[in-house]
């Protein structure tokens, strides 16, 4: 079975001379489909930078990235169309839900389905919301929903295009303990039931039991995988 993501020898530097920051220093990583992986590490370790590099948001200086066996970044250069690759492979969940404020929950997900060109977007949006247990809030505007509800809608939205790789940068930072844990468990379900690889940046050590693998980052270097 091909890996959902493979990254080799990723480097990313910021600044130069005295102010040079090696945000990513020879990072290699493989994410398996159906696995939830946690990315841990102190502030400034380079976790967000790695997520952006893997999500093709901010490309690495050098290194190669494969998505589902397809080489998409070679020596820091993007191969293919960014919007196409995002539509085909990637789903993002942010620290804050970042729902489009002028669309209802249902419309937020439906829009993502439309952009991701999934068949019958309305039906799929409805199903995803039900699956994430926020079906009853489908017609609510984001401003009227709780943080936990919004984050569930945001996850539904990230799944709209059936991504092979879901990237989440501190998705529970704005939630309380109970809701935070519920969201982490959702990521586990996403990996198991939707068959996606899920990479979650987190500082919350109380929920690590949810993950299949843990990676620690420090000073731009990625430590070896260890079991939870």
């Amino acid at each position: 079975m091909t890996d959902a993501l493979r990254a080799e020898h990723i480097f990313k530097h910021f600044g130069e001379g005295d102010t040079l920051v090696r945000a990513l220093d020879d990072v290699s990583l493989t994410l398996e489909a159906g696995h939830v992986v946690a990315l841990l590490g102190p502030s400034g370790a380079g976790k967000s930078t790695l997520v952006k590099a893997l999500g093709l948001v901010s490309l690495p200086d050098t290194g190669k990235i494969w998505l589902e066996g397809e080489l998409v970044v070679d020596d820091g250069r993007l191969l293919g169309s960014l919007t196409e690759l995002r539509k085909r492979f990637l789903g993002f969940v942010f620290q804050r839900p970042n729902l489009i404020p002028f669309l209802t929950a249902q419309q937020n997900v439906e829009l993502a389905c439309e952009i991701g060109e999934t068949a019958s977007p309305r039906k799929r949006a409805r199903e995803l919301l039900e699956w994430l247990e926020v079906g009853h809030r489908a017609h609510a505007m984001p401003a009227t929903m709780s943080g936990g509800e919004q984050q569930r809608v945001a996850i539904a939205r990230a799944l709209a295009n059936r991504p092979r790789l879901v990237l989440a940068d501190e998705p529970t930072a704005a939630l309380d303990k109970v809701r935070g844990r519920a969201v982490m468990e959702l990521f586990q379900r996403v990996a198991r039931e939707q068959g996606a690889a899920v990479l979650v940046v987190t500082h919350d050590h109380r929920t690590l039991d949810v993950f299949d693998e843990l990676h620690e980052m420090e000073d731009g270097k990625l430590g070896p995988a260890r079991a939870a």
Binding site: V57, R86, K87, F92, F94, N98, N161
Partner: peptide, 10 residues
């Protein structure tokens, strides 16, 4: 919102 839409592949 536009940044979010871009990440969604809009």
């Amino acid at each position: 919102d536009i940044a979010v839409l871009k990440l969604m592949g809009a």
